[in-house]
């Protein structure tokens, strides 16, 4: 699905990713954990194509394509989805119009005819139910005035509409209460399939109680320093990150 080799990236003068290696196969759920400032969100941003970051080395192959050469929209159309840590409020743009445009682009890219208004609405109804998103929210401006929980549910709803091959969840659990966390996780789990992979970036283990990963990685100082089964997350929760730091040092 995605193969990241020796990825190096910096913002301004500061190098953040220092040779990151990671391979995710179809159907797998990988969790990336790590202390603050280890490069978790940078990884998500670089993969999605945020232009603030400069890739200074390494390569990323996504579905056989050189991901780093693609514009953000091309990455999306190829099936990469980033659930934002801080979803952006866009006053005046209705969720529906936005989604219609996004789904339309995706279908065009895949050589499919646009959905009829009826089919589109049916899909919206079905997928918004996955995250228990009030139908009214779909008609409001994108994320405007949404609560923290609604924003994150809206991210997962968009993911469900776009049906990506690889979804990157960037600290989707941050700012969520336990009920919202459960709903978001339930939406993600409903989308799990043998063809779809997930990269779950999180600070805390609790999200992984709901979205159970196949593999857990620890990111520290811009590199993956430890990889293990799902139990590694529990160990991190118990011991904190200090023992990892000591091991690396």
């Amino acid at each position: 699905m995605i193969e990241i080799k020796n990825l190096q990236a910096s913002i301004g003068e500061k190098q953040i990713l220092k040779g990151l290696n990671l391979t995710v196969k179809p159907g797998e759920v990988h969790a990336i954990m790590g202390p603050n400032g280890s490069g978790k969100s940078t990884l998500a941003s670089v993969l999605a194509g945020r232009e603030d970051y400069e890739v200074t080395g390494g390569e990323v192959v996504f579905n056989g394509k050189n991901l780093l050469e693609l514009a953000p929209e091309e990455r999306s159309r190829e099936g990469l989805f980033l659930a934002f840590q801080y979803p952006v409020e866009i006053p005046g743009v209705s969720n529906m119009n936005f989604l219609k445009a996004a789904v339309g682009e995706m279908r065009k890219h895949c050589g499919l005819d646009p959905l009829s208004a009826k089919d589109f609405l049916a899909l919206v109804k079905e997928r918004s139910a996955l995250v228990e998103l009030d139908g009214q929210l779909a008609h409001r401006a994108v994320n405007e005035g949404f609560s923290g929980g609604e924003k994150k549910r809206n991210e997962v709803f968009q993911m469900a509409m776009l049906e990506p091959k690889l979804a990157i969840l960037d600290e989707t659990d941050s700012g969520l209460d336990i009920d919202a966390l459960r709903i978001v996780a339930q939406g993600v789990n409903a989308m799990r399939s043998p063809e779809r992979s997930f990269l779950v970036i999180t600070h805390y283990q609790r999200l992984l109680d709901y979205i159970v990963p196949d593999v857990v990685h620890v990111l520290y100082k811009g590199q993956i320093v430890k990889t293990g089964p799902k139990e590694l997350a529990l160990e991190l929760e118990e011991k904190g990150y200090d023992w990892i730091k000591e091991t690396v040092a």
């Binding site: 514009a71 953000p72 929209e73 999306s76 866009i90 936005f98 996004a102 682009e105 968009q158």
Partner: peptide
């Protein structure tokens, strides 16, 4: 906002 929309597949 521009990046958000592009990350969902809309052209610039």
């Amino acid at each position: 906002a521009l990046f958000y929309l592009r990350a969902r597949g809309l052209s610039a």
